[in-house]
Amino acid sequence: MTLNSVRRRGRTLLIMIAALFILTAGAAFAQQAEHSASAAAGTVVPKAAAALAVGLAAIGSGFGLGRAVGSAMDAIGRQPEASGKVMGAMIVGAAFIEALTIYAFVVFILAPQ
């Protein structure tokens, strides 16, 4: 068995696992949506999808906050006497960035079971 064929086989296996996961997850979501739809009319977003959305939003917010705070620390290191102003601006900016995750969290809270 050559290295190339092992690689190809591994890739096929990965794709199959991914396909299986996506299919079953989709079925589970569909089932859940059906279930909640029968429980209360007009409910579309399942809780699991909303939870996933919070995680995805947190990834973006994490990158953004990392950049913002890192740059602020750089600025303070370069000019320690301006630390008060930099801190104030950073906290407001961080609030705007973090608010995006909070919106996703609010959607998660409001999503039907």
Partner: peptide, 10 residues
Amino acid sequence: SLRLFGNILG
């Protein structure tokens, strides 16, 4: 309002 509410509720 959503920012404050979400943070404290969380």
